[in-house]
Design a protein around this nucleic acid. Structure first.
Lengths: 339, 339
DNA sequence: ACATTTTACGAAAACGTTTTCGACTTTTTT
DNA sequence: AAAAAAGTCGAAAACGTTTTCGTAAAATGT
């Protein structure tokens, strides 16, 4: 019921000017000890907090960073946010999150809404639709206005910005080679459609690992899934039509779905078929058997993205327009799904 | 590199006044057809978008709602956010998310930061530490300033605000009764410490279901877990010390941990022991066996919370100070962990 | 006693909007 | 032809800050 306390109100209550109040609260030497303590006491007593909107307008910076991700109900993205949030808060920034829902239009709308002064910079991962359209005009508009963007995971080389990625090719190579070393002969990969960069790159790593051992990857070894919603049948058929003894899956959902299908088919994991997944989330830890995975460390990616962005934001005179691509190390976490 | 376009810049470029530009863009009849189209064309060409910070300051509303939750790497909270975000966006609001990390202090700090003009209202779920301290002064300060709060899931009756909850007692009663009807005789419940409301209430529902069949709940039937991190041993001991044939778990993590422990002990699920969990998330769907759960429908809770909050926000003259508690229906999703 | 410096405060501009009001010009009415 | 009305635009205030600059009073120096 009492309206928000402002400088003006303090000023009239204490019969001084607004500027005096402002200076007193910021410990200016221009104000006498006496009035300074009087004002500060009053402010403390009634819990004065400067209005952040007014500050944003005045300073032309909001101390907020915007995140745009495809989905939040997704362990990897949730961990990234967690990392962003942690370092952002440490450095006095707040985080605004919007979801594109894998839709290009929603990504554009959200971006435009945030770009109009609401935030100082972006951290984002592209929606599937954006990846497939390869339309990045909304990103360009933002960077042209001098607002920095840091992209992670699903990125595009066509945009001038810092990028935080994992080396998908190499990670997938590692996973595949791991299976080969364990003695697997007939490998398959369950991937996404090619326009999703992680799917394409992980398939490439798979192929390269095979080539290194003088195998040529054949089409029937690859399953490309567009829509994760009803992947069950696709995966089951893929496994039935091929006699694999090792599977690489580009996410844990595909991996656990494959694991269950194989078990239904009477296969033992890891004895008959070994599985390596990407994304070290809940499912990998709690599925039966637990899954060997490539851990992406979303928390670290988020933290790095936030650091990079804030660094850019606070380097006022951004004369040196340099953009960096940071490759975050992955690690193979061995669990029960491999021998 | 080109600075952001403002009304002032358009005005000088077109040699009219700022007010004329503002009016023209808002299609005021005060401005002649001719200048109006001239200005609108210019604005469109250079992609003018009003600065939202300035608007917020002017209108004394930000069109943003703040969310404070304990963790984001948690399926239930992620679905709630998803629901909030959907409804908020439909109604032209944006969402700012902060995480308390289950810490009282961080909850207070985040709340104070957001309350200073950054947002119009709150949607939140209390941190464990706040629940245990029962210190709600930060919430009171906010409501006293006339800023509405909608709480969900982890709520407190002591705060005057709308609340979105599930009927934990009744849901737990349903889950327990379901096990009893399936023929279970020796039931146990894996819960949280009592100051977490959901743990307390679900334990109560468990007790009531037993009482209804003339059983008295005994202490050894209840396991109260404080820290989910290392619950494995606690759960394993609990299961070894008792010969249960039915388990109610207040979340899916406890449930799947119990399930694995039981299987290690050579028990068959659901033949030897049946399990019902709360929180219908990824684990329930993909664990082996899949888990029968009470579905909380976080998406709906989030959507409801957002609707309620926005309704309050847009009812300018909130003379009628009424607060509602909405109980969201739960449903029992039968899967493999029960006969 | 006068000039100079220091102290302590207030006025005003700026950030980007919207809106009220006043004023000038043109058109319509009588 | 004079009066009223309508049409078109700009000035200024307001939202809550911070900061620059100006200035009056007090203190200090000669």
């Amino acid at each position: 019921m009492p309206q928000k306390l402002t400088l003006k109100k303090i000023a009239t209550d204490l019969k001084v000017s607004i500027s005096t109040v402002s200076k007193a609260l910021r410990d200016s030497h221009e104000i006498s000890e006496e009035t300074r303590t009087k004002i500060k006491d009053y402010a403390k007593k009634f819990n004065y907090k400067p209005n952040s909107i007014a500050l944003s307008l005045k300073n032309q910076k909001t101390k907020k960073i915007g995140i745009i991700i495809p989905e939040i109900v997704h362990h990897f993205f949730a961990t990234v946010i967690s990392g962003v949030e942690r370092v952002a808060n440490e450095k006095g920034y707040q985080v605004i999150i919007t979801l594109s829902g894998e839709s290009f239009d929603k990504e554009v709308v959200n971006m435009e809404m945030l770009a109009n002064g609401s935030i100082d910079g972006f951290i984002m991962s592209l929606s599937k639709e954006t990846m497939s359209k390869q339309d990045f005009h909304h990103l360009r508009e933002v960077t042209n206005q001098g607002m920095p963007i840091v992209m992670f995971d699903r990125v595009s080389k066509d945009i001038q910005c810092d990028q935080i990625i994992i080396d998908d090719v190499s990670a997938s190579h590692t996973a595949t080679e791991f299976l080969l070393r364990k003695g697997c002969k007939k490998l398959g990969i369950i991937s996404t459609v090619d326009y999703v960069s992680v799917g394409r790159l992980r398939t490439q790593g798979f192929r390269e690992a095979l080539q290194q051992r003088m195998f040529e990857m054949e089409e029937h070894q690859v399953l490309k899934i567009e829509d994760a919603e009803n992947c069950d049948n696709l995966i089951e058929n893929f496994l039935k039509e091929n006699e694999f003894d090792g599977i690489v899956a580009v996410n844990e959902l595909f991996a656990v779905t494959a694991s269950k299908a194989l078990q239904r088919m009477g296969k033992k994991i890891p004895q008959d078929v070994a599985i390596v997944a990407f994304t070290d989330g809940m499912l990998s830890k709690y599925a039966s058997p637990t899954l060997t995975t490539i851990s992406q460390n979303g928390e670290e990616m988020g933290a790095l993205a936030a650091s990079k962005l804030i660094e850019k934001l606070e380097a006022e005179d951004h004369k040196e327009e340099s953009y960096e691509t940071v490759v975050v190390k992955t690690s193979l976490v061995e669990r029960e799904s491999t021998p």
